[in-house]
């Protein structure tokens, strides 16, 4: 086996097939994610970034092509099955947690990701210690509020919790879809740093969509740019390190033929 964690082979995805609105969103994506990659994903609004992540997670079935995770074909697997290995954080902070459940209940659910659930008590006493240590690293004082409903938390707190839930059982692949876009700059930075810390500590293979070119350059070891359903730029290592925002804008213009304003990308 290679050291590929994820392989996408000729993935096609269209919406509203057979109507006048038929929309071919992913156009034959071939893409390999290596073990340990931390890939940032950028591209204009509607380029297909979220759709790409949704096909990987299983939320959207693909029209054709294959998805391999550690060499296993998961193309036809349901979302809940893929969740054994793939975890994700959405843009909307409300999406990643259950509001009417408490912090500890949410964490307990995440701790059971990919495992069989039975009639045992949902939260075991020794798990509370684990939750508290894990929550401490967020530095949000949530470790003393285990029994608080998640619905009472702020967007930033919820997003940090979601991130913790996504990594409490180390996934093979972590998918982040603009998970800081809805937060204010300070909170966004906090959540980003936490992301970086968790991903590096646990060496999690990660795909992170971002609308900020600075973030795309600052984080990760590899960067891809999507345009019109294709991956048009794929740089890694030193080549990525040398890139600047003006370089990215130039690349965007070259590949898409669209006006290379930062706005065009920011909308992403």
């Amino acid at each position: 086996m290679t050291n590929a964690t994820l392989e996408l082979q000729n993935i096609n995805k269209s919406f509203e097939v057979g109507t006048v609105n038929e929309n071919h969103v992913l156009k034959g994506i071939d893409f390999t994610v290596n073990k340990g990659d931390f890939i940032t994903v950028i591209g204009g609004n509607g380029a297909g970034k979220s759709t790409l992540l949704n096909t990987i997670s299983g939320s959207y079935p693909v029209d054709s092509g294959q998805i391999l995770l550690d060499g296993q074909d998961i193309t036809k697997e349901d979302t809940y099955k893929r969740a054994r290995f793939i975890s994700r954080v959405f843009q909307d902070a409300r999406m990643g947690t259950a509001s009417r459940l408490t912090i500890e209940e949410n964490l307990a659910l995440a701790l059971k990701r990919g495992k069989k659930r039975g009639l045992g008590y949902g939260i075991k006493r020794n798990q509370r210690d684990l939750f508290q240590t894990e929550l401490q690293q967020l530095d949000l004082n949530l470790e003393n509020r285990l029994k608080m409903d998640v619905g009472l938390l702020s967007g930033g707190q919820r997003q940090a919790l979601t991130l913790l839930m996504a990594t409490i059982v180390t996934p093979k692949l972590l998918l982040l879809d603009e998970h800081t876009a809805a937060l204010d700059p300070k909170t966004s930075e906090m959540v980003l740093n936490l992301t970086n810390k968790l991903v590096n500590e646990k060496d999690i293979t990660t795909l992170m969509i971002t609308h900020s070119m600075d973030q795309a350059l600052d984080f990760g070891n590899r960067l891809i740019m999507m345009d019109n359903g294709r991956i048009v730029v794929d740089v890694s290592g030193e080549e990525k390190d040398r890139l600047t925002v003006p370089d990215l804008l130039a690349l965007f213009k070259e590949k898409s033929g669209k006006a290379a304003t930062e706005d065009a990308m920011l909308l992403g």
Partner: peptide, 28 residues
């Protein structure tokens, strides 16, 4: 008792947030 078991928690989570539940491996 039931709604505090692992399955019970999963049922409550499903009603609260279907996406999140599936993302956490719950067969909703």
């Amino acid at each position: 008792l039931f709604f505090n078991t692992e399955i019970g928690l999963a049922i409550r989570a499903t009603g609260d947030n279907n996406e999140m539940s599936q993302a956490n491996g719950i067969r909703t």
